[in-house]
Design a protein around this nucleic acid. Sequence first.
DNA 1: TATGAATGAGTCTTCATTCAT
DNA 2: AATGAATGAAGACTCATTCAT
Lengths: 233, 233, 233, 233
Amino acid sequence: MHAEIHLTMRSDARKEQQLKLSDMATTLSSGAQEPKRQRGHLRVAAIMEAGVAVFTEKGYDAATMTEIAARSNTAIGSLYRFFPSKESLADALLSRYVEDTTSSFTALADQASAMTPGQLADAFVDFMLSLQSQRSLAVALVDSRGGSDERRARFRETTRGSIATILRNAIPHLTKAQSETKAVVLLHVLKAVAGANDEKPAVRRRLLAEIRKLTRVYLEATQSDADDRLSAE
Amino acid sequence: MHAEIHLTMRSDARKEQQLKLSDMATTLSSGAQEPKRQRGHLRVAAIMEAGVAVFTEKGYDAATMTEIAARSNTAIGSLYRFFPSKESLADALLSRYVEDTTSSFTALADQASAMTPGQLADAFVDFMLSLQSQRSLAVALVDSRGGSDERRARFRETTRGSIATILRNAIPHLTKAQSETKAVVLLHVLKAVAGANDEKPAVRRRLLAEIRKLTRVYLEATQSDADDRLSAE
Amino acid sequence: MHAEIHLTMRSDARKEQQLKLSDMATTLSSGAQEPKRQRGHLRVAAIMEAGVAVFTEKGYDAATMTEIAARSNTAIGSLYRFFPSKESLADALLSRYVEDTTSSFTALADQASAMTPGQLADAFVDFMLSLQSQRSLAVALVDSRGGSDERRARFRETTRGSIATILRNAIPHLTKAQSETKAVVLLHVLKAVAGANDEKPAVRRRLLAEIRKLTRVYLEATQSDADDRLSAE
Amino acid sequence: MHAEIHLTMRSDARKEQQLKLSDMATTLSSGAQEPKRQRGHLRVAAIMEAGVAVFTEKGYDAATMTEIAARSNTAIGSLYRFFPSKESLADALLSRYVEDTTSSFTALADQASAMTPGQLADAFVDFMLSLQSQRSLAVALVDSRGGSDERRARFRETTRGSIATILRNAIPHLTKAQSETKAVVLLHVLKAVAGANDEKPAVRRRLLAEIRKLTRVYLEATQSDADDRLSAE
DNA sequence: TATGAATGAGTCTTCATTCAT
DNA sequence: AATGAATGAAGACTCATTCAT
């Protein structure tokens, strides 16, 4: 009963603001309240950083809103002003990550058509390395049970789609279905980059080299496959 | 802050029992069984099965001891008699999984020396498929935060070691360091098999075929590498 | 226990402002209006209307100051400028209702002396019907725990007094005590009019007719009683 | 998510017990856990009494589970073991009241056919007086927003139905519709008995006498109406 | 003066764990 | 030894109220 009341109220209270804020709403799209003053933006940023830290360290379930509030020097009430639920915070974080990632992917896609599979493989690994820090958040939020299922699914779809597109740019003759299957597998392989992070530096270096090799081998094999199929026709 | 205090306290309170438990867990999960107190063994088995089910379904955090007790028709007090903490149950489950897996790996290792890399690749994928059901438990317990960090780490080490051994059996000339690096990567790749489970049947089939191909390609490349290096000497 | 401490504290903190408020509330709810600061009056009016709406819809407890502020397009800070507490707003609303009602009662009282009990009964029911919309506010605020106990008690007294007066006007020979007792009972009966509102139209119609009949019968019986007692002397 | 888990678990855990307890389940029908040991029954009783007290004093919203737990010398967790939500406690209390009331009504119904309207009126008022203490709880729970709407509605229906039946027993010739309309009105009138409780003793006495008179007059008038209608045919 | 961000006590509820019977 | 009642710390979230800008 309370919940309904609350939601109703909020909708009422937010209607008009929703409009003028819709442009900035991208980051906080998940039901989060947009700050209207300078101070608020700083606060939101602080909360998000704390959120990243805590979710990454403990995982979605074990992370507590109280700790996130404390780490960002925010009263719990203020945290909830901007992010009306734990899930909404996780969603916002994920969204931001998706956006960052997506735009990076777009850049990669542009260059992909001019790359050999080997080059592309390196580009992919480098790309994952550049995401590094954020990546572990995504793992904590997506691979665990964090946030809404729906958004997590959408996130996965988006990422897979981006990779599939890049693959088709770089390796013509791939059917859509093929590129999508390969995207899933490739994405999985690339996730190993994030995993490497937890190892000791020496091991990490070797691991990264190996992942690089694997990726290259995979993409080259994919290329030859496509060529074979083509010449067979 | 509170949370930490709490956890600390708990750990303290449990230390001594942990010992009793680990004996028992080992005893139970290894084949050896004490004939006396048959009832107790049945009970423990029931609890463990319920634990597997619940942890798999809900993940470590969301699983409750009460539900595990209920599903195994055990009074909560009895459950705690055998497994003095949630963590200890997760650990026991993981241990059993490790042992099962390890012995399977051993069998695989015996045959590995007679296999070509391509055959080995298929064997690995088939192997993962055969673990399927149990595998999702490991995911729930290892990739999330279930069980003690320490044991999870040990679990990973064991698995990696098994794979490394197999690799060296099948592909001579690999140094220990190489085989270990490759084992990490290969294990990661093979985890995709478990992930494929969540996809629709049609996708799943394509995915598995692709993973198979990737694994084969990877192992074959590994072989040629080793050969090259050898002939270069 | 905590709750009590909290409430106490709040009351303490507000005492002095209560005075300022009650002046204002009285001023506002009586006809007199200060020409200066027109804006403020509009704002107060808007707040009060929103307050009526929200309290009526949700009841005192579930109503939130934030929603009342939003519905009246008022910043929460401004709302608190005029009504320093939720209770003070409820009180102001109740006061206004009492005043409205009282003046209406006064009009009724003027005509009452010329009415037969039967006519008076109808007049009462019609009167309650005319209050309808406001009545539900009173229910939300008086029958629940809205506003201060003290003011609610005063409100009840006033209303009962008005009715008692009317009764004595219409039915001479009633002692003061009698009229007061009857006022309490009559008021209770008339509240059924408000309750009828929640029923389906068909039922509502029948209900109102029945209440009308009951009221008539009651007042007529009261009359005969008085007559009897008189002639018995 | 948690909620679902919880519910699921409970259902599982309770299945078998539900059976052997179904006979006693009447009182705690609203999802409450039945105690299985002596101690538990005492506890449940204590909780319910505390619940009655607190709900009556503060109303549903303002009552806190913490206070109810404290007043019944129960740990909050124990309270929730028996009554898994605030609403379920309110429901259980209401149910018990309904049952008490209903059986009393049944007894009244048996005698009603032999009563004159005047006697019936007195019987009704006496009846309400006998419910006294419990009545104010019903007011707190039914007339406010306490508990689930559905159950409150059902409660009202049941009570009205009982009264309607009694009326038809005592005053033949009433149509079903008539008796139902009159039941609603009569019930409302009788509620004044509970209200009288809050007055000073002297006032209370006079009030009760007046309510008695009103009820008598109403029922007698109802009788004559019915007679008139009959002879007019 | 108006605004809305900040505050934090308090609410309901959950669940691992202990302990009396 | 088995049972399940008891415990209470902790978590997510709300909202009346204050105060800096």
